[in-house]
């Protein structure tokens, strides 16, 4: 049963499939439905130094083959994440990828230092691409110099590997990828949501209370594939690919494009059992294709185009 084994910095995974940050809370709700140990890893909901309520509602809006969300990084804050969420997760042996967010570089440093010190998280995921908070967040994700400085500073205070979650809301994502690689990033997560808006034609106003939100779901998959393909040509850093994954074929496509592992986001909302279902399907696929390891797909793929 090692066909799906995937080893990335800080994340020794029995398969390359994890739920994406923000789409899985801290796992409690899904633990009522299936054993979280089946997952390759768990990307936790973004943690900030202080508790955040987030944005007012409506926070979600449906779009063709997608959805917009503007949750606003709601989370119980660093102390409670450590004392309640991480201690609850201790009973699982699935590696944790802790997503961290903030409005200043000092915020990120504080959260990164404390979370990595717990020894419970396998790696950190720097959220420099949340489009739904007014300050910080996305600014770090669109300016290569700021992104690099933040990466360097977080690396300096962290005792575990650091992945940087890249925003697609940029002209050339390879510039950001290379900037954070030079700054010491251990891996990349890509892509976060695309900034979008839906207007209620009856009221004439944006449907979301936050006005704009992040677009996710199958609608954004071709963009994610294109961006991963572009970045893979520039770097050998591990890439956790995400953006609209909901089927086995999507996962294969992401791996061929250059992803080492994948994260499933919005699909958890329409089918809460999607992750274990896809893990079983990927195992069957690898067996049927006679692959010794699923990464053979990537080697075939990226070198051939």
């Amino acid at each position: 049963m090692t066909r799906l084994q995937t080893n990335l910095p800080g994340l020794t995974m029995k398969n390359p499939i994890m739920p994406a940050s923000g789409c899985f809370g801290f796992g409690e709700e899904f633990a009522n439905l299936y054993d979280l140990n089946q997952l390759g890893a768990i990307a936790l909901k973004a943690t900030t130094n202080h508790p955040r309520f987030g944005n007012e509602t409506p926070r979600v809006a449906e779009t063709p083959a997608g959805m917009l969300n503007a949750i606003g990084l709601q989370n119980p804050g660093l102390d409670k994440v450590i004392s309640e969420k991480l201690s609850w997760l201790e009973t699982y042996d699935t590696p944790l990828l802790a997503n961290i967010a903030g409005t200043t570089m000092e915020d990120y440093e504080e959260v990164a230092a404390d979370l990595s010190e717990t020894n419970q998280v396998g790696a950190l995921e720097l959220n420099i691409s949340c489009p739904n908070v007014k300050e910080g967040g996305i600014a770090f994700g669109t300016d290569p110099d700021l992104a690099a400085e933040l990466t360097r500073r977080v690396k300096a205070v962290s005792t575990c590997p650091v992945y940087v979650k890249l925003s697609p809301n940029v002209t050339d994502i390879t510039v950001l990828a290379q900037a954070v690689e030079r700054a010491g990033a251990d891996g990349l997560s890509m892509i976060n949501t695309l900034s979008g808006m839906k207007i209620d034609i009856h009221s004439g106003k944006p449907l979301l209370a936050n006005e704009s939100g992040g677009l996710s779901g199958p609608a954004i998959k071709p963009i994610a594939i294109r961006m991963i393909h572009e970045v893979r040509k520039q770097t050998e850093l591990p890439i956790i690919g995400m953006g609209g994954i909901s089927t086995l074929n999507d996962i294969i496509e992401f791996i061929i494009a250059g992803a080492d592992a994948v994260a499933v986001g919005t699909a958890n909302f329409t089918n809460p059992f999607i992750c274990p279902e896809l893990i079983d399907e990927l195992e069957d696929y690898a067996k049927a294709k006679g692959l010794e390891n699923i990464q053979e797909l990537r080697q075939k793929g990226v070198n051939s185009f």
């Binding site: 789409c23 709700e29 509602t57 926070r59 979600v60 958890n268 909302f269 809460p272």
Partner: peptide, 17 residues
């Protein structure tokens, strides 16, 4: 009644004060 995402408490779409 509220707009919902997941319906099981994971997505924080239908939160109130």
């Amino acid at each position: 009644e509220e707009r919902m995402g997941c319906g099981i408490g994971a997505c924080f779409a239908c939160v109130c004060h």
